[in-house]
Amino acid sequence: MALSRKNIKDAGKNSKVKGEKRHADKNVKEKLTEVLELPKEVILNIPKMTIIGNKELVIENYKGIIEYGSARIRINTGTGLIKITGNGLNIKEITSEDVIIGGDISSLEFQM
């Protein structure tokens, strides 16, 4: 995984050609995980989210917290930003792997 991440980073920094290659690389990976039925969030470095009603949201495989308030939380992930709005939002637990957000969640938005 670390290796692939490095590839992506390198790809981003360098030329357009490599960017296309990266796109192709991702498609191959996606297909591979589908064929082999591997957990996508690990291989593709995308978040896995578990939401319990509108009370609790668990985001695994996130990257960092961009904004944190009681009405709005934005979290950076492999697929872009996730915006959570609601009332009385708080972070119940936070580790390097996952974050658990509690409170009354009213919307969940993906910002690419």
């Binding site: 960092g64 917290i65 944190y68 708080n90 972070i91 119940k92 936070i94 974050v99």
Partner: peptide, 17 residues
């Protein structure tokens, strides 16, 4: 602050703004 903490493997809970 939270991001650095998690990055340094410091476990935080019941974070309230």
């Amino acid at each position: 602050f939270i991001n650095i903490c998690t990055h340094r493997q410091i476990f935080l809970w019941d974070v309230n703004r």
